[in-house]
Design a protein around this nucleic acid. Sequence first.
DNA 1: TAGGCGATACTAAACCGTTCAGTATTGAAA
DNA 2: TTTCAATACTGAACGGTTTAGTATCGCCTA
Lengths: 213, 213
Amino acid sequence: MARPRSSSAHQKVLRAALELFGERGIDGTSMDAVAQASGVSKATIYHHWADKEALLMEAMLLVHGLDRESKEVDTEDLCRDLTTVLTRRNPDEFETERERLTPTLIAYSALHPKFGKVWRDGFIQPPRRSLTRILRRGMESGQLPADLDLELALAILLGPIMYVHMFRRESRPDFDYIGSTVAEAFCRGFAVEQAKLSKLPKTRRITVSGRLR
Amino acid sequence: MARPRSSSAHQKVLRAALELFGERGIDGTSMDAVAQASGVSKATIYHHWADKEALLMEAMLLVHGLDRESKEVDTEDLCRDLTTVLTRRNPDEFETERERLTPTLIAYSALHPKFGKVWRDGFIQPPRRSLTRILRRGMESGQLPADLDLELALAILLGPIMYVHMFRRESRPDFDYIGSTVAEAFCRGFAVEQAKLSKLPKTRRITVSGRLR
DNA sequence: TAGGCGATACTAAACCGTTCAGTATTGAAA
DNA sequence: TTTCAATACTGAACGGTTTAGTATCGCCTA
């Protein structure tokens, strides 16, 4: 028909929104500020997005990567598979923005359950599912204890990475290094062969799913 | 002089603020809402605190426990010491409030560096220091590799607990269980005796401070 | 009787979302 | 190639709401 929407304006707004959301928080960023920073008029912004939340949602999708191919890995080598998933980088170009946005999204998700569900389903669950599949295979093949506490295992694998994301941002840590180290430490700590070699007295053995025995 | 300030009003405001900050976030909580919820007039609130940030600060101190005895532990048993620190509960009565407030504080700290510094110095650093001391002893005594990457070790120890706090709040996890399991897994993964028994091929040995060799 | 207290009104600023007149840009018909 | 209708964009203004913080009252108590 007639004039199509300017995708350049669309992109400029998204970039500016990302920048500002990360810098000042979501509540701390007014639509006027987005308009000014992007150079796109507020009226136009409201033609492209219904409201601030819609803009936030698309910005989040952009920064987290829209594709999210969650290719599965299965190389028989438990530790290698875990490492692969834990060191998998997101399609990056928005790494900085994502890093800065993450704390804000955590808080926002805690306060807005609806948004939180979308965020978690889209970006927290996928790696959890990949890891879960690998762990289950390990349990079935006997490499891991059959009564492994999955929830705890996921926390042990993903927690350190999140921790570093959260508190060591300025020191620009090497996430590949962390991911592989965590995976290997996990395997050492939980793989059945290792457990059998443990010299820890039985009373302090880890049962992993139950408490200490 | 004359009439002293009502400590009851003071407490009521703090409690209400905690409740609301946790429930709606900091930016999402107006001083009017605090006044209404506490039953204390806004004028009185501003007699007790200079501004919203001062109120937030005191509320945070309250919820995190003002005392914070950071008793050191040293029982020659590395793993036991780590477990002790990781399962140390805070003086509780405000557990619920603290749990709810944490995501908000993470975001707020990321956006307000000044506040963030106080928060981290007060409540993130102490356990880190305790653990660091224990880890150093382990390195000196030879129980841990001399070139252990402290930053990474801290992430591995504290990350899983934070992860569970963050994402598994509803499932009411048992933090003592997590703390002790993480400590023991860490010891298995990194203690030198265990490492020597490792059957992993040398090329996949973990050097812990450097990358993979 | 000095000063804390509650109630309420107030200010100045910021916010979101809407509206509108005027201008620029487009695809398609002529 | 020209024309034209349809739509997007700008810039500015505006309404209604909310905010942090101040000010002004009497009332009440240590």
